[in-house]
């Protein structure tokens, strides 16, 4: 009788301990939460009218709902952002007022973009890219056509070559063999974007998928999209 009672108690304990363990094990794997500060927006702006050209911008999404608008200007523009389930809005108030609004799908991919600076609206695109530690440009080359203001072809073949070495540098030209990719040292933005500044010459762009989008300001404006070689 005693042995039977002991066996029942032992079984009860085993069940109790097992249920405790089971509580821990049965927690379903939750999907990684979306952390906005681990992402940045890279996109393009094109005038809706007049002499059209396409420039590149980045929005770095910082802590405390602060954001940095990075374009070909020498300094960045500090603004704020708000994020909802379906929309990301970046805003600057005051003398340099502007607003950028991005519609998001359930996976936080940008499905549409809107941009207005003071009273001027632009055709906008945007991509939500993860901030990466590794340089996604390093060691890659891209080829495409460069355009100038007005959508006129400037160089039918333009190649960008990014150095794979310790320094973040690149070169560009129309002939792969003639490009020195140690020439221009750039600042890496979020792992997928770059900004090069030399005096009044500024070049910035980003890679998404196997395509590089670039804007170059060298007195005049040049831009293009380039496919990875």
């Amino acid at each position: 009788m005693k042995i039977k009672l002991f066996t029942i108690i032992l079984a009860a304990f085993t069940l109790l301990a097992g249920s405790c363990k089971k509580d821990e094990q049965n927690i379903p794997d939750e999907p990684e939460p979306f952390v906005i500060t681990d992402h940045f927006v890279a996109g393009t702006l094109t005038q809706k009218s007049g002499t059209r050209y396409t420039s590149v911008f980045f929005i770095r999404l910082l802590e405390d709902n602060k954001a940095l608008f990075i374009n070909s200007s020498a300094t960045n523009l500090t603004g704020t952002y708000t994020l909802s389930e379906t929309e990301l809005t970046f805003e600057v108030t005051g003398g340099n007022a502007r607003i950028a609004r991005f519609t998001l799908d359930k996976d936080k991919k940008i499905t549409s973009a809107y941009y207005k600076a003071l009273n001027t609206e632009y055709d906008a695109t945007g991509e939500m890219l993860p901030v990466g530690e590794t340089n996604q440009l390093a060691g890659k080359s891209f080829r495409g056509e460069e355009f100038k203001m007005g959508g006129v072809s400037n160089k039918p073949v333009m190649i960008y070559s990014f150095n794979n070495g310790a320094t973040n540098s690149y070169g560009s030209g129309f002939d792969t063999n003639g490009i020195d990719n140690t020439l221009n040292t750039y600042t890496l933005i979020g792992g997928a974007g770059f900004k090069y500044v030399s005096g009044n010459n500024v070049e910035l762009g980003f890679v998404s998928g196997k395509r590089l989008t670039v804007f170059r300001s060298a007195g005049l404006y040049y831009y293009g999209k380039y496919d990875q070689l």
Binding site: L68, L77, T78, T80, G94
Partner: peptide
């Protein structure tokens, strides 16, 4: 440890992250 410095107002300015 993350240190973030931004202009207090919204405008062009220096930043550091």
């Amino acid at each position: 440890i993350k240190v973030q410095i931004t202009l207090a107002e919204t405008n062009y300015g220096w930043d550091f992250v």
